[in-house]
Design a protein around this nucleic acid. Sequence first.
DNA 1: GCGACAG
DNA 2: ATCTTGTCGC
Length: 309
Amino acid sequence: MALEAAGGPPEETLSLWKREQARLKAHVVDRDTEAWQRDPAFSGLQRVGGVDVSFVKGDSVRACASLVVLSFPELEVVYEESRMVSLTAPYVSGFLAFREVPFLLELVQQLREKEPGLMPQVLLVDGNGVLHHRGFGVACHLGVLTDLPCVGVAKKLLQVDGLENNALHKEKIRLLQTRGDSFPLLGDSGTVLGMALRSHDRSTRPLYISVGHRMSLEAAVRLTCCCCRFRIPEPVRQADISSREHIRKSLGLPGPPTLRSPKAQRPVACPKRDSGESSGEGQPPQDHSPGPRTASRPGSQEQAGKDWQ
DNA sequence: GCGACAG
DNA sequence: ATCTTGTCGC
Protein backbone atom coordinates (compact mmCIF):
# COMPACT_ATOMS: atom_id res chain seq x y z
CA MET A 1 0.00 0.00 0.00
CA ALA A 2 1.37 3.34 -0.91
CA LEU A 3 1.50 5.79 1.90
CA GLU A 4 -0.65 8.84 1.73
CA ALA A 5 2.47 10.91 2.18
CA ALA A 6 2.27 12.38 -1.26
CA GLY A 7 -0.93 14.35 -1.12
CA GLY A 8 -1.83 14.43 2.54
CA PRO A 9 -5.45 14.09 3.64
CA PRO A 10 -8.10 13.89 0.95
CA GLU A 11 -10.19 16.90 0.12
CA GLU A 12 -13.11 15.35 1.92
CA THR A 13 -11.23 15.29 5.21
CA LEU A 14 -10.13 18.86 4.80
CA SER A 15 -13.67 20.04 4.33
CA LEU A 16 -14.74 18.12 7.42
CA TRP A 17 -11.98 19.83 9.32
CA LYS A 18 -12.97 23.20 7.92
CA ARG A 19 -16.55 22.67 9.04
CA GLU A 20 -15.33 21.77 12.52
CA GLN A 21 -13.21 24.88 12.66
CA ALA A 22 -16.13 27.02 11.55
CA ARG A 23 -18.36 25.44 14.14
CA LEU A 24 -15.95 25.95 17.03
CA LYS A 25 -14.95 29.40 15.87
CA ALA A 26 -18.34 30.69 16.92
CA HIS A 27 -17.33 30.09 20.53
CA VAL A 28 -14.17 32.16 20.48
CA VAL A 29 -14.15 35.12 22.83
CA ASP A 30 -11.58 37.67 21.71
CA ARG A 31 -11.69 39.99 24.69
CA ASP A 32 -10.61 40.01 28.32
CA THR A 33 -12.87 37.99 30.56
CA GLU A 34 -10.74 38.04 33.73
CA ALA A 35 -9.97 40.92 36.05
CA TRP A 36 -6.22 40.24 36.11
CA GLN A 37 -6.02 40.66 32.36
CA ARG A 38 -6.83 44.32 32.71
CA ASP A 39 -4.56 44.95 35.65
CA PRO A 40 -1.36 46.80 34.71
CA ALA A 41 0.74 44.36 36.77
CA PHE A 42 -1.47 41.33 36.16
CA SER A 43 -2.11 41.13 39.87
CA GLY A 44 -4.36 38.17 40.49
CA LEU A 45 -2.49 36.10 37.95
CA GLN A 46 -0.60 33.27 39.64
CA ARG A 47 -0.27 30.44 37.16
CA VAL A 48 0.62 30.50 33.48
CA GLY A 49 0.61 27.32 31.46
CA GLY A 50 2.49 26.31 28.36
CA VAL A 51 2.06 23.41 25.96
CA ASP A 52 4.15 21.89 23.25
CA VAL A 53 4.58 18.75 21.20
CA SER A 54 8.01 17.46 20.19
CA PHE A 55 8.73 14.75 17.70
CA VAL A 56 10.93 11.73 17.47
CA LYS A 57 13.40 12.32 14.71
CA GLY A 58 13.10 9.51 12.24
CA ASP A 59 9.53 8.78 13.24
CA SER A 60 6.45 10.41 11.80
CA VAL A 61 4.18 8.92 14.43
CA ARG A 62 5.78 9.02 17.84
CA ALA A 63 5.85 12.30 19.69
CA CYS A 64 5.73 13.74 23.18
CA ALA A 65 3.12 16.19 24.41
CA SER A 66 3.89 18.32 27.42
CA LEU A 67 2.01 20.67 29.69
CA VAL A 68 3.80 22.81 32.20
CA VAL A 69 2.50 25.35 34.69
CA LEU A 70 4.67 28.20 35.92
CA SER A 71 4.16 30.49 38.85
CA PHE A 72 3.67 34.13 37.99
CA PRO A 73 5.52 36.41 38.04
CA GLU A 74 8.41 34.20 39.23
CA LEU A 75 8.13 31.89 36.24
CA GLU A 76 9.11 28.81 38.17
CA VAL A 77 7.83 25.42 37.10
CA VAL A 78 5.21 24.18 39.55
CA TYR A 79 3.78 21.40 37.41
CA GLU A 80 4.99 19.32 34.54
CA GLU A 81 3.48 16.41 32.70
CA SER A 82 4.79 14.74 29.59
CA ARG A 83 3.30 11.90 27.67
CA MET A 84 4.38 9.86 24.68
CA VAL A 85 1.70 9.83 22.04
CA SER A 86 1.11 8.34 18.63
CA LEU A 87 0.19 10.98 16.12
CA THR A 88 -2.52 10.03 13.71
CA ALA A 89 -3.20 13.18 11.75
CA PRO A 90 -0.53 14.52 9.41
CA TYR A 91 0.68 18.08 9.60
CA VAL A 92 -1.18 20.32 7.23
CA SER A 93 -0.74 24.05 7.42
CA GLY A 94 -3.98 25.50 8.65
CA PHE A 95 -4.97 22.31 10.46
CA LEU A 96 -2.28 21.96 13.08
CA ALA A 97 -4.87 21.57 15.81
CA PHE A 98 -6.17 18.32 14.44
CA ARG A 99 -2.71 16.89 14.88
CA GLU A 100 -1.84 18.19 18.32
CA VAL A 101 -4.87 19.37 20.25
CA PRO A 102 -6.33 15.98 21.21
CA PHE A 103 -3.23 15.19 23.27
CA LEU A 104 -2.98 18.62 24.80
CA LEU A 105 -6.61 18.33 25.78
CA GLU A 106 -5.91 15.09 27.58
CA LEU A 107 -3.09 16.70 29.53
CA VAL A 108 -5.34 19.55 30.61
CA GLN A 109 -8.08 17.16 31.61
CA GLN A 110 -5.67 15.05 33.61
CA LEU A 111 -4.53 18.14 35.46
CA ARG A 112 -8.12 19.12 36.05
CA GLU A 113 -8.75 15.78 37.71
CA LYS A 114 -5.60 15.27 39.70
CA GLU A 115 -4.37 18.76 40.56
CA PRO A 116 -7.20 21.20 40.01
CA GLY A 117 -5.46 23.70 42.25
CA LEU A 118 -2.65 23.96 39.74
CA MET A 119 -4.86 24.68 36.76
CA PRO A 120 -3.28 27.54 34.83
CA GLN A 121 -5.27 30.74 34.42
CA VAL A 122 -4.02 31.12 30.89
CA LEU A 123 -2.23 28.93 28.37
CA LEU A 124 0.48 30.04 25.99
CA VAL A 125 0.27 27.91 22.87
CA ASP A 126 2.96 27.23 20.32
CA GLY A 127 1.22 28.39 17.14
CA ASN A 128 -1.38 30.92 16.05
CA GLY A 129 -4.77 31.94 17.33
CA VAL A 130 -6.99 34.05 15.08
CA LEU A 131 -4.00 34.78 12.86
CA HIS A 132 -5.02 31.90 10.66
CA HIS A 133 -6.42 30.98 7.26
CA ARG A 134 -9.91 30.78 8.67
CA GLY A 135 -9.40 32.74 11.84
CA PHE A 136 -9.19 29.64 14.01
CA GLY A 137 -5.69 28.44 14.75
CA VAL A 138 -4.54 25.92 17.33
CA ALA A 139 -4.62 28.45 20.18
CA CYS A 140 -8.31 29.16 19.52
CA HIS A 141 -9.03 25.48 19.13
CA LEU A 142 -7.44 24.51 22.42
CA GLY A 143 -8.97 27.55 24.09
CA VAL A 144 -12.51 26.72 23.08
CA LEU A 145 -12.19 23.04 23.97
CA THR A 146 -10.71 23.74 27.40
CA ASP A 147 -12.49 27.04 27.94
CA LEU A 148 -9.21 28.43 29.21
CA PRO A 149 -7.82 31.81 28.17
CA CYS A 150 -5.26 31.10 25.46
CA VAL A 151 -2.63 33.05 23.58
CA GLY A 152 -1.15 32.13 20.23
CA VAL A 153 2.63 32.46 20.12
CA ALA A 154 4.14 31.76 16.71
CA LYS A 155 7.78 32.00 15.76
CA LYS A 156 7.13 32.62 12.08
CA LEU A 157 4.63 34.77 10.27
CA LEU A 158 1.79 32.79 8.81
CA GLN A 159 1.20 34.52 5.52
CA VAL A 160 -2.55 34.76 5.31
CA ASP A 161 -5.06 37.46 4.45
CA GLY A 162 -2.48 39.41 2.53
CA LEU A 163 0.15 39.34 5.26
CA GLU A 164 3.58 38.85 3.77
CA ASN A 165 7.04 38.53 5.13
CA ASN A 166 8.27 40.97 2.54
CA ALA A 167 10.66 43.89 2.51
CA LEU A 168 8.15 46.22 4.14
CA HIS A 169 7.48 43.72 6.90
CA LYS A 170 11.18 43.23 7.48
CA GLU A 171 11.64 46.94 7.68
CA LYS A 172 9.00 47.18 10.36
CA ILE A 173 10.81 44.45 12.25
CA ARG A 174 13.98 46.43 12.03
CA LEU A 175 12.23 49.28 13.76
CA LEU A 176 11.46 47.14 16.78
CA GLN A 177 14.28 48.27 18.96
CA THR A 178 13.60 47.11 22.48
CA ARG A 179 11.69 44.47 24.35
CA GLY A 180 7.99 45.21 24.23
CA ASP A 181 8.08 47.03 20.90
CA SER A 182 5.46 45.76 18.51
CA PHE A 183 3.42 46.54 15.44
CA PRO A 184 -0.01 45.35 14.35
CA LEU A 185 -0.54 42.76 11.66
CA LEU A 186 -3.31 44.20 9.57
CA GLY A 187 -4.89 41.84 7.10
CA ASP A 188 -6.47 42.81 3.79
CA SER A 189 -9.82 42.13 5.38
CA GLY A 190 -9.21 45.19 7.51
CA THR A 191 -8.80 43.21 10.71
CA VAL A 192 -5.85 43.30 13.05
CA LEU A 193 -4.95 39.63 13.15
CA GLY A 194 -2.14 39.89 15.62
CA MET A 195 1.01 41.69 16.64
CA ALA A 196 4.66 41.25 15.83
CA LEU A 197 6.47 41.55 19.14
CA ARG A 198 10.08 41.99 20.08
CA SER A 199 10.10 39.81 23.16
CA HIS A 200 13.68 40.31 24.26
CA ASP A 201 16.26 43.05 24.04
CA ARG A 202 18.80 40.68 22.56
CA SER A 203 16.54 39.07 20.01
CA THR A 204 16.00 40.43 16.54
CA ARG A 205 13.36 38.00 15.39
CA PRO A 206 9.90 38.88 16.61
CA LEU A 207 7.17 36.64 17.93
CA TYR A 208 3.78 36.68 16.28
CA ILE A 209 1.12 37.00 18.95
CA SER A 210 -2.55 36.48 18.32
CA VAL A 211 -5.69 36.00 20.34
CA GLY A 212 -6.55 32.43 21.19
CA HIS A 213 -9.50 32.70 23.51
CA ARG A 214 -10.84 34.85 26.34
CA MET A 215 -8.15 37.50 26.17
CA SER A 216 -7.64 40.72 24.28
CA LEU A 217 -4.73 41.09 21.89
CA GLU A 218 -3.34 43.91 24.01
CA ALA A 219 -3.29 41.78 27.14
CA ALA A 220 -1.91 38.83 25.19
CA VAL A 221 1.06 40.84 23.99
CA ARG A 222 1.69 42.35 27.40
CA LEU A 223 1.52 38.98 29.11
CA THR A 224 3.77 37.29 26.59
CA CYS A 225 6.36 39.94 27.16
CA CYS A 226 6.14 39.43 30.91
CA CYS A 227 6.86 35.74 30.44
CA CYS A 228 10.01 36.17 28.40
CA ARG A 229 13.36 35.56 30.02
CA PHE A 230 14.55 34.76 26.53
CA ARG A 231 12.98 35.07 23.13
CA ILE A 232 10.53 32.23 23.69
CA PRO A 233 8.16 32.78 26.60
CA GLU A 234 9.07 30.54 29.53
CA PRO A 235 5.88 28.48 29.63
CA VAL A 236 6.29 27.41 26.00
CA ARG A 237 10.04 27.10 26.33
CA GLN A 238 9.78 24.89 29.42
CA ALA A 239 7.15 22.73 27.76
CA ASP A 240 9.48 22.34 24.81
CA ILE A 241 12.40 21.42 27.02
CA SER A 242 10.31 18.93 28.97
CA SER A 243 8.95 17.19 25.91
CA ARG A 244 12.36 16.86 24.30
CA GLU A 245 13.86 15.57 27.51
CA HIS A 246 11.07 13.06 27.85
CA ILE A 247 11.73 11.78 24.35
CA ARG A 248 15.40 11.39 25.15
CA LYS A 249 14.65 9.22 28.13
CA SER A 250 12.10 7.16 26.28
CA LEU A 251 14.69 6.48 23.62
CA GLY A 252 16.93 5.03 26.25
CA LEU A 253 19.58 7.64 25.71
CA PRO A 254 22.11 8.18 28.46
CA GLY A 255 21.06 11.74 29.11
CA PRO A 256 22.39 13.64 32.12
CA PRO A 257 21.06 11.61 35.12
CA THR A 258 19.86 14.35 37.38
CA LEU A 259 22.26 17.04 36.46
CA ARG A 260 20.59 20.37 36.18
CA SER A 261 22.07 23.48 37.65
CA PRO A 262 19.25 25.46 39.20
CA LYS A 263 20.52 28.79 38.08
CA ALA A 264 19.13 31.69 39.97
CA GLN A 265 15.82 32.53 38.44
CA ARG A 266 14.72 36.06 38.67
CA PRO A 267 11.32 37.31 37.75
CA VAL A 268 10.98 39.15 34.49
CA ALA A 269 10.22 42.80 34.71
CA CYS A 270 6.73 43.40 33.48
CA PRO A 271 6.36 47.14 33.28
CA LYS A 272 8.34 48.79 30.51
CA ARG A 273 11.63 49.26 32.23
CA ASP A 274 15.16 48.15 31.60
CA SER A 275 16.58 45.77 34.13
CA GLY A 276 19.88 44.83 32.62
CA GLU A 277 18.65 41.64 31.03
CA SER A 278 21.81 40.08 29.76
CA SER A 279 21.39 36.49 29.00
CA GLY A 280 21.85 34.85 25.69
CA GLU A 281 19.02 35.01 23.26
CA GLY A 282 16.97 32.60 21.32
CA GLN A 283 17.26 29.25 23.06
CA PRO A 284 20.31 29.62 25.33
CA PRO A 285 21.45 27.55 28.28
CA GLN A 286 18.73 25.13 29.10
CA ASP A 287 18.32 24.79 32.79
CA HIS A 288 15.60 22.23 33.14
CA SER A 289 14.15 21.85 36.57
CA PRO A 290 12.80 18.38 37.14
CA GLY A 291 9.15 19.03 37.86
CA PRO A 292 7.57 17.71 41.05
CA ARG A 293 5.34 15.08 39.56
CA THR A 294 6.25 13.17 36.49
CA ALA A 295 4.07 10.24 35.68
CA SER A 296 4.07 9.05 32.17
CA ARG A 297 3.95 5.79 30.37
CA PRO A 298 4.72 5.18 26.77
CA GLY A 299 1.77 3.99 24.84
CA SER A 300 -0.46 4.77 21.97
CA GLN A 301 -3.45 7.01 21.99
CA GLU A 302 -6.69 6.10 20.37
CA GLN A 303 -7.77 8.92 18.17
CA ALA A 304 -11.24 9.79 17.10
CA GLY A 305 -11.56 10.79 13.52
CA LYS A 306 -8.74 9.22 11.63
CA ASP A 307 -10.78 9.58 8.51
CA TRP A 308 -8.04 10.70 6.14
CA GLN A 309 -6.69 7.20 5.59
C1' DG B 1 6.52 25.82 -13.27
C1' DC B 2 6.99 28.66 -8.96
C1' DG B 3 6.28 29.77 -4.37
C1' DA B 4 4.39 28.95 0.11
C1' DC B 5 4.23 25.91 4.05
C1' DA B 6 2.01 27.79 12.29
C1' DG B 7 4.29 22.96 14.20
C1' DA C 1 8.88 19.81 13.91
C1' DT C 2 14.09 17.49 13.36
C1' DC C 3 19.62 17.83 12.53
C1' DT C 4 23.52 20.37 16.87
C1' DT C 5 29.41 21.30 19.03
C1' DG C 6 31.93 24.36 19.60
C1' DT C 7 32.35 28.90 19.96
C1' DC C 8 32.09 34.00 19.75
C1' DG C 9 30.60 37.72 22.75
C1' DC C 10 29.15 40.32 26.96
